[in-house]
Design a protein around this nucleic acid. Structure first.
Lengths: 123, 123
DNA sequence: AGTCAAACTAGACGCATGTCGAAGCAACCT
DNA sequence: AGGTTGCTTCGACATGCGTCTAGTTTGACT
């Protein structure tokens, strides 16, 4: 394992990133911590994977169901899930033969907050 | 100009993308229209550029000010600004000698909305 | 043990991307 | 006109990334 998860949910690491980008300029280090997360969302397959996981009732999805939803090989799906996992947007849990993925709402919420536009800014 | 701006502000093109990713699975076409925008944010330099522009009072920034904020050459900054412009996150306007960039709040808001997590989802 | 299926890892291949130096445009000056 | 500054385009280079095939691990079931 070359990279370890960034863990967007951990306050100590990223609470100082929880500021709308519109409110004040991001520092270089804030930008460097946030950019990889947006990059992870910058692939259509990963966006759909995350959405499939996050919107699934029960809050988790088996890999086999995810693989079926795409015209891609299993290793490719596995690779994308690994990216999402390492960035802290999802977690994985093995139960018997199958592996289930869950979304991390806190991580999503942080990324949403950074892009949010206050009302008075005139959307 | 090889690509033209995606224009995230145009309702006809992207209003059907204005749905939280957590609410229901993104379709393939939705994901393919949204992913390039997140990819554009997936670089620390572009994130900071966008933040510098969006948070600047007056709502616009001259390129020269942006270039000074980084340890990069002018062509590189220009390249990143072009990416942000083509994706519809900023607009550019020349006034005399200088070029000013403005942020597009509507585009930002869309990307924020897609990542937003409803309260009851338990952040 | 042997087998099968689910999922991941390893390695390879081609395309995309970030960066730079050099050159080109555009607008302002003498 | 000529020169200067601000910004962009062009072309090149190294690196990164998405995808695949082939092989490996993990667990369940005979």
């Amino acid at each position: 394992m070359s990279k370890q998860p960034v863990d967007l949910a951990r306050p100590a690491e990223l609470d100082d990133c929880r500021v709308p980008l519109v409110a004040e300029p991001l520092t270089a280090s804030q930008a460097e911590r946030l950019a990889p997360s947006y990059k992870a969302l910058g692939d259509p397959v990963r966006l759909r994977l995350l959405s499939l996981i996050a919107s699934h009732e029960g809050g988790e999805v088996c890999v086999c169901d995810l693989t079926d939803a795409f015209d891609l090989t299993a290793p490719t799906i596995s690779h994308h899930l690994k990216v999402l996992k390492e960035i802290g947007l999802v977690t994985a849990e093995r139960r018997g033969t199958w592996v289930y993925y869950q979304a991390c709402p806190a991580a999503l919420d942080l990324l949403s907050t950074v892009l949010s536009v206050p009302q008075e800014a005139g959307v």
